[in-house]
Simulated assay, not measured.
Amino acid sequence: MQSLAPIALFVYNRPDHTRRTISYLQKNLLAEDSRLFIFSDGAKTEADQIKVNEVRALIKQTDGFKTVKILESAGNQGLANAIISGVSQLVEEYGKVIVFEDDLLSSPFTLRYFNDALQRYANQEKVMHIGAYMYPLAEKSLPQTFFYRAATSWGWATWSRAWKNFNPDINDLISQFSKPQIKAFSIDGTMNFWKQMKEFKSGKNNSWAIRWYASVFLAGGLTLNPSKSLIHNIGHDGSGVHSNKEDIYQVHVARQVVQSFPLELAENEEAYQAIKHFLRNRKGNLLQRVKRFITKKLS
């Protein structure tokens, strides 16, 4: 049997989200053969401490995996630093890692998809990232999985050989982009990835994910993705870091095993166009946008 990748789960102060994330992970086909590492960040404020304690009491009861190891941080690292150090630690020891945050509900076949893909592309330098979330795409003729340029952060996996390319230095990253690359990086201007880069530089966000995508992009890397999402994010209720209250990205999680993987190491043009179409139209027409804006304000 293949050696399964360790699972890193990053938790903070959301006991209900954490409980649901773990319960869905426990129902995964390979859960009982997988090592789970739960990284619990320390409280930022006294008000957060109560919830952090609740989460810590909850994770201590976790079972259903080959092993469960809990790593509690005394101080508050913040999500970005916690993920960067946790991922670095596990890829150094195991050569690969599967990464979850505390607001991701998985399909029973998500761990199988990750492990099969990690094994299949282990020695393909160009494949740098495996994502499990996919937008609700309208295109029905896409293959089960495909390569794409952007790295999604809602459930993902990578290898130590790829993570070596991670560059946390935003100034160094930004300096390497040409105008055409900026356009390509932002999916022809349909997604605010470049804005996220500039906002990180100016201290308006603390995203590890945008720097990881930039690192993959500049290295000419590819990301593997499913055409039907294997993850549903429940964090868009205003409770998380960088999370707004919205329903644009809601999906029905795929209920079947992923059996088909691309042979050609190149971005799938049909998938790229389908994603671009979704991103361009995701906020709807003017009336739908106004309605969403009013709903957000009232809530």
Rank of each mutant, 00 (worst) to 15 (best):
I275R: 10
S202P: 06
V68W: 05
W163M: 08
F37R: 10
I130V: 15
D33Y: 11
I231Q: 07
F146M: 09
L218N: 04
W154Q: 12
S229L: 13
K164I: 14
E199W: 10
L79W: 02
D103M: 04
A150N: 11
Y148P: 01
W159N: 06
R211Y: 03
S229P: 05
N205I: 14
S34A: 12
S106T: 15
N53E: 05
N167S: 08
Y24M: 11
S186C: 10
T67H: 07
Y272V: 09
G220C: 09
S73G: 08
Q61K: 11
G86R: 00
L90P: 02
I130Q: 07
A132G: 14
W208P: 05
A157G: 15
R14H: 12
F147D: 01
K69W: 00
F166D: 04
E32I: 11
A117L: 05
E246Y: 02
N281Q: 14
P6V: 07
T18G: 04
N206D: 15
K297Y: 13
P226V: 07
G131T: 12
F278T: 04
K27P: 01
V87H: 03
A150E: 15
R112N: 10
V253Y: 01
V68Q: 09
R14E: 05
G75T: 10
F293R: 08
Y213Q: 09
H236V: 04
L104E: 13
S3E: 15
I234N: 02
V11N: 00
Q256C: 11
G86H: 01
G221A: 11
L137G: 04
Y249Q: 11
L36S: 05
V55F: 02
R289T: 03
F147H: 03
S178G: 05
F261A: 03
G78V: 04
E269H: 10
K198I: 11
P180T: 06
L173N: 05
R14C: 01
A150I: 09
V55A: 06
R292K: 08
A117T: 02
A274D: 02
N192F: 09
N268D: 14
L36P: 09
Y249D: 13
T110M: 14
A157C: 14
A5E: 07
A266H: 08
H236Y: 14
K195C: 02
I84K: 10
D103V: 05
P6Y: 06
Q288T: 11
S23C: 08
V253M: 06
L142R: 10
P168Y: 07
L263Y: 04
P143N: 04
L286K: 10
K297S: 09
H232C: 02
N225K: 11
M134W: 02
L265D: 03
A57L: 09
N165Q: 12
L9W: 00
S3N: 13
D116K: 08
V127M: 12
L298G: 01
H236D: 13
N225T: 07
A80V: 02
Q89P: 00
H242G: 01
R282D: 00
